[in-house]
Amino acid sequence: MKHILRVVTLCLVMSVMAFLPGCSVESESPAQEKAADQTPAQENSEAAEKNTYPDRAITMIVPYGAGGGTDTYGRMLATQLEKHLNAQITVSNQSGASGSIGTKYVFDAPADGYTVLFAPETLGTYRTMGISDLSYDDFVPISVVVNDPKLVVVSKNSKYNTIEELLADIKANPGKVSMSHSGPGGSGHNQGLILKELGYDVAMTAFDGGTNALLGVIGEQVDFTNPNLSFTTGYIDSGDVKVLAVFSNERIAGLPDVPAFTEALPESEKYLNVPLTPLSLLVKKGTPEAVIEVLRKATLEAFEEEEWTSFVSGNQAEPLYKKYKTQEEIYDFYHSWQSMICWLQYENGVAKISPEEFKIEKYNE
């Protein structure tokens, strides 16, 4: 009898608890129910939103050799990002095939934000050049960073002392004056194609990266090259090279006595309206949005660092992150850049595949 009373009492207590606030006799907790309803993607997103990213070191792939323009800016940005991500960023140079080897490495890595790409502009030409099937469309831009000014330089012992002298010799000896560049489809190569479009045919020689292309001039293996200002300043200061022109529509404050290329060749202006050397910070498409937002926030904060702003202004770089701010604006810029450069390469017999195959509209001059 006592046993029956205990059972009845227990049942009454449980019945009352079911109606009391905060009490439950369910077998699963609310947390368990929530977890059951979530997909793995939602769980990953929530983890990122709770600032668990990054919880280990990040690798930044620079797909060109150490010491070049892409590498110089990538390393400086990595230093600033570390301050705002509270994580170590290891910069790894994986050069070759116009940057496509390093780019493929990032594409093959997990889309988790722990392998990022600091990309040169060659990413926009891989498909039409037949180098790779990757393009800007396979990545998400964290930011388009800077446009690194391009120069026209010769060795200190060169017979050329002005851009007019160089152009006159190229005109008089088509295909004989040699020019080094960082690889097929790179910015220096594109400058050579622009010269060809304007009636100046040069003998183009590819080197592995911009630094080696510049050393080829200093070593007098070739007549001239088109390096980025960021890694040429030291050679200018030491007197190892002479700067004949800034490959731009305007002179730059850091080299006030050096003419803009359009001063010698006004008809080149139509090709210099679009920044030729955009550098970008990208992640693989499919990276969780929460991770992307963490990276974007940290990047914007890095751009405010005094060390970064001094570096950009000191190298006379164009801060493209101030001009193209939203993801839509960045993609629009990429598409306009591709529409000019890809068609320029294709119509000069450099690109193997027509831009039409990738629905790249022709640049409207």
Rank of each mutant, 00 (worst) to 15 (best):
K83W: 03
L85T: 06
N86W: 13
A87R: 14
A87Q: 11
Q88Y: 04
Q88T: 15
Q88D: 15
T90W: 03
V91F: 03
V91H: 05
S92W: 03
N93H: 14
S95D: 07
S95G: 08
S95A: 15
G96D: 05
S98W: 05
S98A: 15
I101E: 07
I101Y: 10
T103N: 13
Y105G: 07
Y105L: 14
V106H: 11
V106C: 11
F107P: 11
D108F: 06
A109V: 05
T115V: 14
V116N: 10
L117Q: 11
F118P: 02
F118A: 04
A119P: 01
A119H: 03
A119W: 04
P120H: 01
P120A: 15
P120E: 01
T122E: 14
T122C: 04
L123R: 10
G124E: 10
G124S: 14
T125P: 01
T128K: 11
I131H: 04
D133C: 02
L134P: 14
S135M: 09
S135C: 04
Y136F: 13
Y136M: 08
D137I: 05
D137N: 12
D138Q: 12
D138A: 04
F139D: 05
F139N: 09
F139R: 11
V140G: 01
I142C: 01
S143C: 03
S143W: 01
V145N: 01
V146Y: 00
P149Y: 00
L151D: 00
L151W: 00
V153W: 01
V154L: 05
S155M: 03
